[in-house]
Design a binder for these strands. Sequence first.
DNA 1: CTGAAAGCGCTTACAG
DNA 2: CTGAAAGCGCTTACAG
Lengths: 358, 358
Amino acid sequence: MGNKSVNLKALAAHLGLTVSTVSRALNDYPDISLATRKRVKAAADQLGYRPNQNARRLSIGTPETVCYLMPRQIGPNAQPFVAQLLAGLGEALNERNWDLLVSQADASVGDLASIERLVKSGRIAGLVISRPLKNDPRVKLMQSLGCPFVVHGRTEKSDDYAWYDVDGEDAFVTAVNHLARLGHRRIGFIGAPLQYQFAQERLDGYVRGLSHNGLDQDPALIQIAEFTDEGGTAAAGLLMDLDEPPTAIVCVTDMMALGTLEALHSRQIMPGRDVSVIGYDGLHFGKHAHPPLTTMAQPQAHAGRRLGDILLSIIDGAAPTKFQELQRANLVQRSTDGPVTTSTSTGQTHVSEREESR
Amino acid sequence: MGNKSVNLKALAAHLGLTVSTVSRALNDYPDISLATRKRVKAAADQLGYRPNQNARRLSIGTPETVCYLMPRQIGPNAQPFVAQLLAGLGEALNERNWDLLVSQADASVGDLASIERLVKSGRIAGLVISRPLKNDPRVKLMQSLGCPFVVHGRTEKSDDYAWYDVDGEDAFVTAVNHLARLGHRRIGFIGAPLQYQFAQERLDGYVRGLSHNGLDQDPALIQIAEFTDEGGTAAAGLLMDLDEPPTAIVCVTDMMALGTLEALHSRQIMPGRDVSVIGYDGLHFGKHAHPPLTTMAQPQAHAGRRLGDILLSIIDGAAPTKFQELQRANLVQRSTDGPVTTSTSTGQTHVSEREESR
DNA sequence: CTGAAAGCGCTTACAG
DNA sequence: CTGAAAGCGCTTACAG
């Protein structure tokens, strides 16, 4: 049945009414008699009428659509959050029957041009930006375009727009504190390129954590790499090849931490016993690492939902600066953190009790 | 600058032309003089004019939008593919300047009603359905609606629509063959609920693999559970608690396989030495499992791109049945497969050479 | 309580 | 080569 789906005109004709009346009946205008309202709705249901949204939105003057800007892909399966985030966003939007558009910068056009086109073409009422740079031109662009947006994360100067973020600096202070309490004094840092604000924040936290614990900061202990497992492996390799390698390593993401575990294993170093490793993200997969990865877990379950609600509020007219929400990450101790060992035995290792369990 | 973005009328006025002429100039109608075409485009660029897409699409009669139906969320980070898939889809759509909508069934409305509303409201020109059931009502619905769609996966009877899938049956024959060659004769199967077609296919492959290798089929060796790591752990527990436990286990997903590794570890059984485990998916994370997970890897990198291209072709008028593409998964040997061991020593285990490397 | 009309911002035959 | 007009399918003041 290739029904060219019924439109208002057809429905009105069917009812012997005018489109104007039918439209108002469907939209529950009180000036339409209850009787006809019912009759119209029944007929609409029966004929399977659905208002054409393009037409409706053109008429009411809002696209009723919000866009999520995909972070650039870095390696395979590098975006474990995206699905969950979209689910949360969609949940918020579903409540109003709004649509969720997903966009990635068209390679041939560029990030900014893509965004500008998107908003100028009237397709979206708001935008979610993720993984911002320290100084992210997308933020300024959106501001100059006067289009509502919310950032998942923050930029360096984050006082004049809406964002939802996890306190990475605090998290790394916590991680370093934890390691210091375990006796570690040489703690390495594996970071991501510092144009990303999250990378800078976490580095700041690391540095603050060191000084808070009276530990010297050794530039050699700071390694920056791409935030993939391979990046982590490479960085950890450099760290462990130092004359005085660290006894503990904090990593800016769980993926990098997994890569770090690789580097340690290939050197016959047992993570959590010989060298401690703490990641960041709280990826579910970390449970299955070898050994299970200790990590600073961010409360990601509700990020999408919250971002959606914030964005809708701003679209409704709320001041963006009302929405600057900082969550805390918390230490999830699995098995890659442990007390510092005095003997630097990097020889043949045995499986410890601990490692076997969980 | 809160420019109420310029529209055609404004642009036309600015140029001293009529909207009709300006529109045709922008769309490169040959009957407009090259000179004015240039002049119009220059002005459009300068004023930052972008045609309102809602209006344009209403006029040209197509939403120029395609929708990806999110699979229902199963546990945290359970959808590692989604991001990559969306990226591929977006790439295909970007080439035509089409939009990608993401939709999840509105809980309060239901899957089918959500879809029906979506297509009847003229918002989408095509749909991507993923993870279909054996007998998936969404397929029939889309057919009766006469709306182009492509399925990522297949249903039981898959001859009359377009799909892109990986041959799960073949993959499990391969996995069983591999294990049989290693000497295993009691091979367990950890599957997902059989209303999912992928679950049935992989079970079929397992059964075929057994008979192909002259192995008896023991119902006790088949365990069905939710396809999460916890599901895998539970199922593997049941398997290993059998009087005659299997010496090898194939799992319908990598997540279940990771859960299986947990179950083995908690019983002091070393995967790959005492009991072999083969997963399915080829998740990147499997490399970091303990030990690294052997798996049937599906070539997922281009799925999204391919699905997008197929869907666009169908929208362009191609016959859906022209697009029924079956890919092969291939065995990625990491460290959880190994020859069957005679001694069923489930006591204290040592780290084998193998397990330490990679 | 219902209808006739204008408008949202485009595109596209149809004239001239 | 350009303009005037109708139409895409809705919504919403404005009459009556």
